[in-house]
Design a protein around this nucleic acid. Structure first.
Lengths: 111, 111
DNA sequence: TGACAATATTACTAATCTGCAATATTATCC
DNA sequence: GGATAATATTGCAGATTAGTAATATTGTCA
């Protein structure tokens, strides 16, 4: 079905979508997601991988979990986080390609 | 190529991606984009379609334009805005499907 | 040129958000 | 139980944001 014929999003949908994008609109949170891409990790490991402070990592993980983007499971003393929604990397890929397109075009415009 | 083998995003890329998501993280802006989906429109038409105030629409259009999501072209007295990046609706679609999945799963969990 | 219409910008308030230090919670081990 | 380690939460300062009213800009037409 061509895009032009697909249905509009409802106000409720748009609000939900906006909130999901808000969860993804912070560099630290994307860094954390990216660090979980290779493999699940404990909070302390995420701190090491990203260089972010523990309190900050916990806070951002809470936001990501409430958004349904990561999941956690206790393992003894520690809590292991993992990606719950791999589609987030699809989103990032789409955006990243767009950013590259824009950058390339900006180069051309200067010639 | 399986996702697990694709390359990480660089810090610079992640920051850019986060900023793009930030542009999309507001209900009014998504409403404006959605209103432009059917057809390009003048600012005054966007106000009518969305019910948003003129100053607000202009402000949000500025953010969307700076993000490279819409483009504008003057037509006499008015300025016509149009979608510059249809991929934004792909993003919304992906997120929307995820929200539906989550909602459905929440229903199941209550049984 | 002057009046008018369409859009952009500015200044502002209220609300929200990030990162941090300090503290609380939870589980393990002795 | 008490000490310790891992994680979560709280309170806070500084920065950012959305929406608004008022004002500035830009183009059209007489």
């Amino acid at each position: 079905m061509p895009r032009s014929l697909s249905k509009d999003f409802s106000p409720v949908q748009l609000q939900g979508i906006a909130e999901m994008f808000a969860s993804l609109s912070d560099g630290s949170r994307l860094t954390i997601l990216n660090s979980l891409r290779t493999s699940p990790a404990f909070v302390s490991e995420i701190c090491l991988r990203t260089g972010l402070k523990q309190a900050n990592v916990s806070k951002q993980l809470g936001i990501l979990r409430r958004a349904g983007l990561v999941q956690s499971r206790r393992q003894g003393n520690q809590i292991k986080y993992s990606i719950r929604e791999p589609m987030v990397f699809d989103l990032c890929g789409i955006v990243c390609r767009k950013l590259r397109r824009d950058a390339r075009q900006r180069v051309v415009m200067l010639h």
